[in-house]
């Protein structure tokens, strides 16, 4: 199968800043591709480039078989783009917004009626269809925005942090919808700051400083980082953090609230040693266990590694 989205050396400069730097990406039809990375990594710029909203500085790309530089208008009917900020018409009702975009995408009247009903049910907005968009909750606004990008049944969806600022229940509902679309065969590229969401993607690209650093399945990314994960809940996490960092065999320490996540070489052997070391220093432990590695730990570990490498290069 040939790629539905393909970029080669795609770059975009804002003055001297390379917001997207030499991006090589290949996305197959039907993929649910997650784009992760710290703020300012270039996720939004990448999605805007693919949606034809920004001029390409260097490189080339094709979306749905059309050249991004020369045929952006042929790409537009093939994609549904959802910007990070709410970008619908606040003064129009849910139905009016849907109808507006249906008209712009030349959806026939009969199809409009059928699709509108289906999308409203799909997004759980049927009882709010007369409500103006400005009066919807944040989660409902996001679902309406998604419904508007789906009205023309595009084969490709480009979603820029669709769940940022949304409550956990709405977030889950939103992802259930995305999963359904994924199952129907829609190609989805979604950027997200949430690692649990990245875990639900078929493939994840990690961006840093405009570059695609890692691009693999969540499972493979989790296994890319070395060591096993130990989770401990000490009384005094600041002191505990200092102590465990000095224990040999502890590769990395990450804090999660008052919990510490340690990446260690050999979990089974290391766990009792760490517990003893902390007790010796008079730190009470409320719990400690071996845990499966998540995207979260992998992400932080990868970013740390990339940052220290970048510093080394800068030092030289």
């Amino acid at each position: 199968m040939s790629a539905i989205i393909e970029t080669s050396g795609l770059s975009r400069l804002f003055k001297q800043n390379r917001a997207v730097d030499n991006l090589d990406l290949e996305i197959q039809p039907g993929e649910l591709f997650g784009l992760v990375g710290p703020d300012g990594a270039g996720k939004t710029t990448t999605l805007r480039l693919l949606a034809g909203l920004l001029y390409v500085t260097e490189g080339s790309a094709s979306v749905a078989g059309f050249d991004l530089r020369t045929q952006p208008e042929s790409i537009k009917p093939q994609i549904g783009y959802m910007a990070q900020e709410f970008s619908l018409y606040a003064k129009l009702s849910v139905l009016e917004n849907l109808r507006f975009f249906a008209e712009l995408y030349n959806v026939s009247k009969t199809e409009q009626k059928e699709r509108t009903e289906r999308l409203l049910t799909f997004a759980g907005l049927t009882e709010f269809k007369e409500r103006r968009a400005v009066h919807l909750s944040g989660g409902m606004q996001k679902k309406l925005a998604l419904a508007c990008t789906l009205i023309h049944q595009p084969p490709i969806l480009l979603l820029d942090e669709p769940t940022t600022g949304v409550d956990p229940v709405s977030r889950r509902e939103f992802w259930n919808i995305l999963t359904e679309l994924h199952l129907e065969g829609t190609t989805i590229i979604v950027s997200t700051p949430y690692m649990d969401e990245a875990d639900r993607c078929s493939r994840v690209g990690l961006m840093y400083a405009g570059k695609l650093m890692v691009c693999d399945t969540p499972q493979n990314i989790r296994h890319q980082i070395e060591g096993e994960l130990i989770e401990i809940f000490p009384d005094n996490w600041q002191a505990a953090h200092q102590i465990v960092s000095t224990i040999p065999g502890v590769l990395e320490v990450q804090t999660y609230g008052e919990a510490l996540h340690l990446l260690v070489e050999d979990g089974e052997n290391q766990l009792p040693k760490i517990e003893t070391a902390l007790k010796q220093e008079g730190i009470h432990i409320n719990g400690a266990r071996l845990a499966p590695k998540r995207m979260e730990e992998a992400f932080i570990s990868l970013i740390r590694r990339i940052e220290s490498e970048a510093e080394e290069i800068a030092d030289e």
Binding site: K76, A83, S87, Y89, F101, Y105, N106
Partner: peptide, 13 residues
């Protein structure tokens, strides 16, 4: 300012 133009630009209008 409200980002609706960005959304419009992504359509075939």
């Amino acid at each position: 300012e409200h980002g609706t133009l960005e959304q419009l630009m992504a359509t075939p209008i």
